[in-house]
Amino acid sequence: MQKVFERPKSLNDRPFHYCPGCGHGIVHRMIAEAIDELGLQDRTVFISPVGCSVFAYWYFETDNVQAAHGRAPAVGTGIKRANPDSIVISYQGDGDLASSGTAEIIHAAARGENFTVIFINNAIYGMTGGQMAPTTLVGQATSTSPYGRDPKFAGYPIHVSEMLATLKAPRYIERTSLNNVANLTRTKRAIKKALDMQNKGEGFTFVEVLAPCPTNWGLDPNESIDWMESNLIPEYPLGVYRDVKTAEVKS
């Protein structure tokens, strides 16, 4: 019998601990596939953040380090500068990256650190129980914005990809989504492209992935996809925000 589907070797056989309908497991798998396809497994150092994916290191058959909340891009900077031959992947959620770690992500991008950041944006805090995130939509109810996010008091969502795209150093920035098969394919392609660029030493690469969080959104997985399409994607338009070669940046 021919095997047509198997576990990437950069992923171990431990079952994911994520909730039904969560996006993390899907993206983990895509990253592992990309690592395998590019032959990077024995050079990869994967950085787990603080958030639902704090235990991402349980799953990746690579070297792993767990970073303090928001600090993964600084940790990644240290690893990459100490060992430029390594392939560094910083995996962060929206609370980690767009709130606690805003300084770290902006400056790593501004320095053009040659590593890859995978940014999971589900517009809410997961691990701590559904609190408002910097990316929470206006009007979206969370456990700390129970009447809906009110811009008068809580301001507006942060658009990280757009913000980072104003910088000169980043090589590649794209926002994708997990809402349908076409976008899943685009997400996988973006992750692989980012890692390939890192491997070629081209600079800072960033993939923002809009992901469902049915548990904390209070929706079932199907409703979550609908909500992404009617609310999340309109707020966070998909697409390539930057794709500029370093040489072009310099000139």
Binding site: A67, T77, G78, I79, A82, S86, A103
Partner: peptide, 24 residues
């Protein structure tokens, strides 16, 4: 050798965390 003027002291110490993770 590498020198980085970090964005904050928070970042500095975490860059150290990453760098020493490699054994250097």
């Amino acid at each position: 050798g590498a020198y980085i003027q970090a964005e904050t002291e928070v970042a500095s110490i975490n860059m150290v965390y990453g760098a020493v993770s490699t054994g250097r």
